[in-house]
Design a protein around this nucleic acid. Structure first.
Lengths: 98, 98
DNA sequence: AAAAGTACTTTGTTTTTCAAAGTTACTTTA
DNA sequence: TAAAGTAACTTTGAAAAACAAAGTACTTTT
């Protein structure tokens, strides 16, 4: 048997980043505020996790306006989508003992 | 929609503890050394994660002898089994967006 | 008798997490 | 027009967690 955890992605060790990704994977885009309210996080905490995901190029930031008010939304990248799916696959395999 | 991450168990944020549990759930018992080799960890690191799981009462330790050599094995508890399953359920629900 | 193995504990550094406060750039209300 | 509010951060600093390396006590192998 080989090491069952090596295929797991360290970036997804965090519940918060896992939550962000699971939201982004089913939503075309979501705003900072929606994420903040959904996940019940402080601004700083959310911003830093989003930053980690952006550094990894798992999501990208889109700045737009709603009327004259700025609105920042986050969109998953292809890389992010693949990384997330690969992680879930690895998890499933690990649990199944494959 | 409600907070999708609140049902996730913080103890299972760690890949290593997730790995230990996924091994224990399908094996009646496993030794320290087997875990160490499988997960490719240093003694100290493995011991501390096992300790976290033991504190949570998710596993118990069984000391025995193979000949005159001590052999420490780890066994999942009912609490551990339930906690792990609940975590996986929560994960699945989160991903499915339920 | 020396070297190696088992299962840790201890020590200390590095990394991660997080809240709180501060900041910038608006917009809205009084 | 001044004060207050909102959005989306950044900075700061503290606490917690992760980890490697070394130490320990005992046993077994060479």
């Amino acid at each position: 048997m080989k090491n069952p955890i090596e295929a797991l992605n360290k970036i997804f060790d965090s519940r918060i980043r896992l939550g962000v990704m699971s939201i982004l994977i089913v939503n075309d885009s979501i705003s900072f505020n929606e994420l903040k309210q959904l996940l019940e996080l402080t601004d700083g905490n959310l911003a830093s996790h989003l930053n980690t995901l952006e550094q990894a190029e798992y999501l990208k930031v889109q700045k737009s306006f709603i009327g004259k008010k700025t609105n920042t939304t986050y969109i998953i990248t292809e890389l992010g989508r693949h990384a997330f799916k690969a992680h879930l696959d690895a998890l499933e395999k690990m649990i199944r003992g494959i």
